[in-house]
Amino acid sequence: MSNGWAIVTGGARRLGKSIALELASAGYDLIIHYNSSHAEAEATCAEIQALGREAWAYSADLRDVAAIEAMFAAIETRCGTLAVLVNSAADFPRTPVGSVRIEEWDSLMAINQRAPFFCAQAAATLMAEHGVIVNIADVGGEVPWPSFVPYGMTKAAIIMMTRGLALALAPKIRVGAVGPGVALLPDGWHEDSNALNKIPLKRLGVPEDIAKAVRFIVEAPYFTGETIFVDGGRRWA
């Protein structure tokens, strides 16, 4: 028996894929949103189907609000209702102050900040009682990183958006957020031993750590409006 349909934006690969597989294990059927990772999205759907759940992939550029609206219209047509939205899609560019171009700024704000809000707004119209929205924030939304100031701004906005949506959508829909620490290094990066030494638990996180926190929020009926930071204690070190 299915617990309903869940959509994970950026669900084809990396952290989004881990979240999608965790939700499938929890009994949800999945919509895997992707932008250009078609092969990875289909492979993720196949893994979900192997777990006995339904899955289908949908491509959309979330920088385009019209594309977001079209995606949720397609979900309504195919699925009817939606149980869970996980806003996972995001960019993480290094943007040292003094070198930021307006094109980079607009693109980052569109995918990291504007898209999650419009996805949440559209998803809420498809949710019955007990719908859940989970936003992927970041430790960088609270801890300033000099080379990633615009990125940190977008994640700080996600934390505040989570609080505001939790109030606006209660009691029908719960809204929470997960703030990862170093859980999955960007493509092309190598493990930073200095960063590792600053983590009290003395290990980097793995995507499954974040996915389990997402599942907790989805399954915790009295949880709303809060952000869970999953960083091995790094914020306090």
Rank of each mutant, 00 (worst) to 15 (best):
A70F: 04
A70W: 10
M71W: 02
F72S: 01
A74V: 00
E76Q: 15
T77E: 15
T77P: 04
T77D: 13
R78Q: 14
C79K: 15
C79R: 13
C79Q: 13
G80A: 04
G80C: 13
L82F: 07
L82P: 10
L82Y: 10
A83I: 08
V84F: 04
V86H: 05
V86E: 02
N87H: 09
S88W: 01
A90W: 07
R94C: 04
R94A: 14
G98N: 13
S99Q: 14
V100H: 05
V100S: 02
R101P: 10
R101Y: 09
I102T: 08
I102M: 07
E104V: 05
W105C: 02
D106Q: 11
D106G: 00
S107V: 04
L108E: 02
L108F: 03
M109D: 05
M109C: 05
A110N: 11
I111A: 09
N112L: 01
Q113V: 01
R114W: 05
A115E: 02
C119Y: 11
A120V: 00
A122G: 10
A122L: 06
A123G: 12
A124T: 01
T125H: 03
E129M: 03
E129Q: 11
G131D: 11
V134D: 03
D138C: 09
G140H: 07
E142P: 00
V143G: 03
P144M: 05
P146I: 04
P146L: 14
S147Q: 12
F148H: 12
V149D: 06
V149K: 02
P150K: 09
P150A: 04
P150T: 09
Y151V: 13
Y151K: 06
Y151T: 06
G152E: 04
M153L: 11
T154F: 12
K155Q: 13
A156F: 08
A156D: 02
A156H: 03
A156Q: 11
A157C: 11
A157N: 06
I158K: 01
I158V: 15
I158S: 06
I159C: 07
I159G: 02
I159K: 12
I159P: 01
M160E: 14
M161Q: 12
M161G: 01
T162E: 09
R163G: 06
G164M: 06
L165R: 03
L167G: 14
A170L: 11
A170E: 11
P171K: 14
P171T: 14
I173G: 04
R174T: 10
V175S: 13
A177K: 06
A177G: 02
G179I: 12
G179H: 04
G179E: 12
P180S: 00
L184K: 06
L185C: 04
L185D: 09
P186Y: 08
G188P: 10
G188H: 10
W189Q: 08
E191M: 05
D192K: 06
S193D: 13
S193V: 03
A195K: 00
L196K: 14
L196W: 12
L201C: 00
K202A: 15
R203K: 04
E208L: 00
E208R: 01
D209N: 10
D209M: 12
A211Q: 08
A211D: 08
K212P: 00
K212F: 00
K212C: 00
K212E: 01
